[in-house]
Amino acid sequence: MKKILYTTDFSKNAEQALPIALKLAKKHHAEIHLLHVFDIPTSWDYPYTEEPLEMERQAIRESEKKLNELFVQYSSDSVEGLKVIYHVIENPSVVDGVLSCIHDVNPDILVIGTKGGSKAREIIVGSSTKSLLSKSPVPVLAIPENISSMEFERILYASDLYEEDIKALEQLIHILEPFQPLIRVVHISNHDANFEAKKIEWFKELLKDRNLNKNIELIHHLSSSIAEGLESILSKNNFDLLVMLEKERHGIIDHLFHKDLVKKMEFRTRIPLLSFNQHHIK
């Protein structure tokens, strides 16, 4: 990876994501881009003038200063030498502001916090995070406020075993290569192993063809609900990261493993969620 984009609303919860963004940048020797999106009508911290353009300039200067202070606060000697670039964008929509920055910067990954506390009408939480999971053209790493681990050693990839998952797994391995993680792909269904055997064997062959079978363990978990199955697995195992592929529903399995599941699970775990979008898998 060459560029990592981190976005913040300057809340304490959003700050939880910065150490992980810095760790990724350090591991990959990548640029770290810090972004803040603001809206003038809600920027009540900058009431120095009634002139809109001057208020915007003041807001930009103050936000750039805060971004620099944030970087200094969380950086250390271990990240010395990292190239850091600050971005401040005025936009009434956080999502649109972030997407415009992604378009301009072309980062390899977006790192966000999943709960905010600013005065902005849209903050990095709830509908904004969900919308970014659906719309971002790059992988989104969402960091919960009660993160349980800062390491990426044990990874759970929830899959319904489609060919697009292979491409996502290849990107995942590239992103986490410096961490040399153990990746477990879990297929959750309400069918027994015999019913799923052909599909599992087909997916194993795909992994083998891409030379991924040595890095990945594939398991089948029986459950009447994908969400309940994931909850069960996560509660019984110490995973550091949950990975899912955001996709449109197509076929019987997708009635269970539909696109909204990614958005629901993000708020039901204390581990980071890495989401790939089916439409932007390279």
Rank of each mutant, 00 (worst) to 15 (best):
N211T: 08
S148Y: 00
Q180E: 14
E164W: 04
L70F: 00
S235A: 15
G229H: 00
M1G: 09
V125E: 15
S100N: 07
I155P: 05
E196W: 03
Y46H: 11
E62V: 04
V105W: 07
E56H: 11
R154G: 10
D160T: 02
S43C: 05
L218R: 09
T8P: 08
T269M: 00
K3C: 07
A17P: 03
S127N: 12
K167T: 12
L18D: 02
V84C: 09
H191Q: 09
S225Y: 06
K247E: 11
H280G: 10
E246S: 10
L132D: 07
L35Q: 00
E90N: 09
S136Y: 05
R270V: 12
V186L: 08
I216S: 04
K115I: 15
H87N: 07
I40E: 13
S275P: 03
L234A: 12
I252D: 06
V185P: 02
R57N: 09
Y157E: 09
D254V: 04
E31Y: 03
T114H: 03
V140D: 08
R249S: 15
Q278F: 09
I173W: 06
L70S: 00
S275W: 05
E50Y: 08
I175L: 00
A120E: 14
V111Q: 01
I4D: 04
I112L: 10
N91V: 07
H250F: 15
K198M: 07
Y46K: 10
D192L: 09
F276D: 05
E217C: 07
S128T: 12
I109V: 01
I124G: 10
H28I: 05
L161P: 06
E80L: 15
E246Q: 12
A59N: 04
L22Y: 04
S127Q: 09
P144C: 00
E248C: 13
I32A: 10
L132Y: 01
E248T: 13
I40P: 04
